[in-house]
Amino acid sequence: MQARHIDHVNLRVPEDGVDDAREFYGERLGFGIEDDPYAAGEKPFFDVRLSATAVVHLWPTDEFEPPTATNYDHVAVAVEESIDEIEAELDAAGVDIEKSMDSPLGATGESPAVYVRDPFGYRVEITAQA
């Protein structure tokens, strides 16, 4: 089997966290939100579009339990901007940077990255690929 890329990641969010998810992933981080089938009741989840070939499925549930150090660490998203551009965009959007690293090891080698938390406690690594 020859894998090409990660197609999607599934994350649970609180039932009442849909607007927070749209605001964080869509408005603050600038990713596309695809939620028409969810809003129409056709799917139990909505998508954060990372690229043409990758999404995060967000599943609202009343049984949501925040991630802990023993069951989740982070999801990493490689972006085209430089680390300086990433930090400036996050600052302008009011997103706190939890930590920065000069050269964490990822799928394509070492690249500078920052780590942020979404409204539900998930850590998101944003890696510069510029």
Score class of each variant (00 low, 15 high):
Met1Pro: 12
Met1Asn: 10
Met1Asp: 07
Ala3Asp: 03
Arg4Val: 14
Asp7Phe: 13
His8Leu: 09
Asn10Asp: 15
Asn10Ala: 15
Val13Leu: 15
Val13Ile: 15
Pro14Gln: 03
Pro14Val: 03
Gly17Pro: 11
Val18Glu: 08
Asp20Ala: 15
Glu23Ile: 04
Phe24Val: 00
Tyr25Leu: 05
Glu27Cys: 13
Glu27Phe: 10
Arg28Val: 02
Leu29Trp: 01
Gly30Cys: 07
Gly30Phe: 07
Phe31Glu: 02
Phe31Gln: 06
Glu34Val: 13
Asp35Met: 08
Asp35Glu: 06
Ala40Arg: 15
Gly41Tyr: 11
Glu42Gln: 14
Lys43Gln: 14
Pro44Cys: 04
Pro44Ile: 03
Phe46Pro: 06
Phe46Leu: 08
Val48Cys: 12
Leu50Gly: 02
Leu50Thr: 03
Ser51Gly: 08
Val55Asp: 06
His57Gly: 10
His57Lys: 15
His57Tyr: 11
Trp59Leu: 10
Trp59Gly: 02
Pro60Gly: 05
Thr61Ser: 15
Asp62Cys: 01
Glu63Ala: 12
Glu63Tyr: 05
Phe64Arg: 06
Pro66Thr: 06
Pro66Cys: 09
Thr68Tyr: 04
Ala69Ile: 10
Tyr72Glu: 02
Asp73Met: 00
Asp73Arg: 04
His74Gln: 08
Val75Gln: 05
Val75Arg: 02
Ala76Trp: 04
Ala76Leu: 04
Val77Leu: 12
Val79Ile: 14
Glu80His: 07
Glu81Leu: 05
Ser82Ile: 00
Ser82Lys: 04
Ile83Tyr: 06
Ile83His: 11
Ile83Glu: 06
Ile83Met: 14
Asp84Ile: 00
Glu89Phe: 01
Asp91Glu: 12
Ala92Phe: 01
Ala93Asp: 05
Ala93Leu: 01
Gly94Pro: 07
Asp96Thr: 11
Ile97Asn: 04
Ile97Cys: 05
Glu98Ile: 10
Glu98Met: 02
Ser100Gln: 12
Ser100Cys: 02
Asp102Ala: 13
Asp102His: 05
Asp102Trp: 01
Ser103Gln: 10
Pro104Trp: 05
Leu105Asn: 09
Leu105Ala: 14
Gly106Pro: 05
Gly106Val: 00
Gly106Leu: 03
Thr108Val: 08
Glu110Gln: 13
Val116Lys: 04
Val116Ala: 02
Arg117His: 13
Arg117Leu: 12
Asp118Thr: 01
Phe120Glu: 02
Gly121Pro: 00
Tyr122Cys: 03
Glu125Ala: 13
Glu125Ile: 08
Ala128Gln: 08
Ala128Gly: 11
Gln129Val: 09
Gln129Pro: 04
